[in-house]
Amino acid sequence: MKLQNLLRREAILAVFIVLFVICSFFVPSFFTARNLINILKQSAIIGLVVAGLTITVIAGNVDLSVGSVVSFAAVIALTYTHADLSQTNISMTAQEGRPLLALAFSLPFLMGAAVGLINGLIISRFQANSVIITLGALSAVRGGALLVAGGKVIYGVKNPVFAALGQAQLFTIPVYVFIFVAACIVLELLLRRTSFGRYVYLIGANLKAAIIAGVPVARVQILTFVISGLMAAFAALILVARLNTASGLIGNGWEFDAVTAVVIGGTSLLGGRGSVIKSFQGAILVTMIINAMVLLNIPSSYQYVAKALIILTAVLIDIRTRREAA
């Protein structure tokens, strides 16, 4: 009985475990330390975006500007790591002279927070639809990233402090994987243990009731958008630290991948239900599916078909079990 309840509550986890076991048996080189670390690496960076977005979605909104924030933040960050132009092959930006690491670290966060603030202000003050507002922001911010980058690729300087963020390892696992896990835990605690978290669920479940109950709706909604903007900027920093290049095209389409992971994790797009840990599972599940298909060497056209069917089935199982429970 208890097991049944557990299965119902953790359907996606169960799907994940079943698929994991199947892959371990049938997919060559899947169950190796290197590949398992790869799956973590491949989910970690976009996972930061997913974790931030989850809170926005629980509050009943969606933030489609995150992919563009990633590209803008990446472009800004690399523009300001040009500590010493003599080390680069080419002077890709006008930045000259001394290390601007402090700027490289802080400006992306400021930008991410600012985009979130503007999204949040408009959506909460005017009760505007978050899909269309953040679609607008998606276009505007990506345009901004392309303008700043001049439509080119920007190469970073191999600045040791900055590079460490993307390249340092602990027990052969990259540090950013730990950062990802830590961020998920912190955000989950924020949702579970603070009044902010309670307000987020309340607003998502019933906006009117939240207003009547005196919840500072606008402030909480704005904060959720600021968080998703900040997490997108954070992901961008790690991404460029690892790849050492950025362009206006980076992070393209991440908004859809991120929303997919959130929804597969079982967070409702209508708001009021879900958790960061669930989205974490969703993100890893999607990565694992793609990883297994690449390892199986399935041609990309068939991958599309398989991916669609697996996502649909996973969500269907989640919905079925949850309805039985209800």
């Binding site: 590949n35 790869n38 690449v294 390892l295």
Partner: peptide, 23 residues
Amino acid sequence: LAVQPTNWSPAEATKITEDYITR
């Protein structure tokens, strides 16, 4: 051995290469 798309993204290329190395 294999052909996988990246959508011209270096980040995707990193992922796919990781899987190639494993496989």
